[in-house]
Design a protein around this nucleic acid. Structure first.
Lengths: 211, 211
DNA sequence: TAGATTGTTAATCGATTAACAATC
DNA sequence: TAGATTGTTAATCGATTAACAATC
């Protein structure tokens, strides 16, 4: 039973559990205890049990957790048991990199279309995905039941375009633009701020030097 | 005075402060109080004052914070007042996207070289940066005082190559490979796990639907 | 049954918020 | 000086860890 209002700290850790369980499955491991998994993942066993119990009893006393079962359950929570149709809005280098990354498809995230305002690249193909003009977005979203938009365009354009996307029915925005989007409640925004990530790296390098 | 052992929660927020202060500066704002900034950034004024006080008294009672001064101080903390030489290891689409992103250079992060093991793309040029073969990395790092390596290659190759990079003198790894690197203490790793980010987005979409 | 390990409650730790004295 | 706002201490909240009874 999925409780709502799971803390963001827990949600952030879920994909990592999913990854380790997937690797265990590939290695043919059938069952694992929170203690073993904690050593593998470098976290406390207590945290693992607490985290998983937010979603219900996935384990069994005296036995541990069945790897495949737990993997599938977490996958279901993460929504990778369904298909999610994606568009890439802004088809520069980063947008193309995302469209080219086939691993997302293995998890059910399908890039259906790409968009750009630059006429020079409209019409081009990226891995069979056509780059279209911005004026086609609205209709495309509706026709193709697009749920998620990866926003890979300059931050100046991002807020306005994001609003349009929401008006067209987009439910989730994967925001690579370095700006905080203010969108209606109910719209999910997941930020990937690469420059902030790089600055954190730099911060840690800098303070380390001064020690 | 920089205290060491600043909590990661605070460090994560620093780049965002830096961004907002930069925008205020561009808008010509000279001074700002924690109260005003808190409204702008949608956090509590108390948190802003606590965060900044980890690093010393940047403000002034009765006045607030001088925007330019605070901007520069945080920039210094983040290490964007220095140059950081970077290489891109793995010159596929994502590696090329990073090399093409000129905004990093404005913050002092200079991509000096790119590397790949695929002979078909070795020798190519990305924005004037040459793609070299993997066997040249070691010498290149030493000659060009490379500090940071962006690791944009398949996760199977990442751990071994990361170890080599560290042996060659790399201090920080910006890790885009979907794997946890185990490296000697003192080496800074900053992870960008795009697939985890996408799954969190999907999680939030999924649970929202069930409400 | 005995041993193992979960699910869950209680204790601890850390981060956030509130309050206010210090001071510009 | 009076008003504003910080720096900082204290209170609260939430997340992590420890402990152990429940149970397979």
């Amino acid at each position: 039973m999925i409780k709502n209002g799971i803390s963001t700290a827990v949600v952030k850790r879920l994909p990592r559990y999913y990854r380790y369980l997937g690797e265990l499955m590939e290695a043919g491991t059938e069952r694992i205890s929170s203690g073993e998994l904690s050593k593998l993942m470098n976290v406390t066993a207590s945290q693992i049990r607490q985290d998983l119990n937010n979603f219900g009893g996935f384990g069994q006393q005296g036995y541990g957790y069945n790897v495949e079962y737990l993997y599938n359950e977490i996958g279901r929570l993460l929504g990778v048991d369904r298909r999610h149709n994606i568009i890439v809005v802004g088809s520069g280098h980063l947008g193309q990199a995302i469209a080219n990354y086939t691993n997302f498809e293995r998890r059910g995230f399908i890039v259906k279309g790409m968009f750009d305002k630059n006429p020079d690249i409209i019409g081009r193909n990226v891995r069979g995905i056509k780059i279209m003009g911005m004026e086609e977005i609205g209709e495309f979203i509706k026709k193709n039941k697009i749920e998620i938009a990866a926003l890979t365009l300059p931050k100046q354009q991002a807020p306005e375009i994001a609003e349009n996307l929401v008006a067209y029915g987009i439910k989730g925005i994967w925001n690579f633009a370095h700006v905080d989007l203010k969108l209606p409640k109910g719209i999910v925004v997941e930020n990937v701020h690469l420059s902030e990530s790089l600055m954190r790296l730099s911060y840690n390098l800098t303070t380390r030097d001064e020690k």
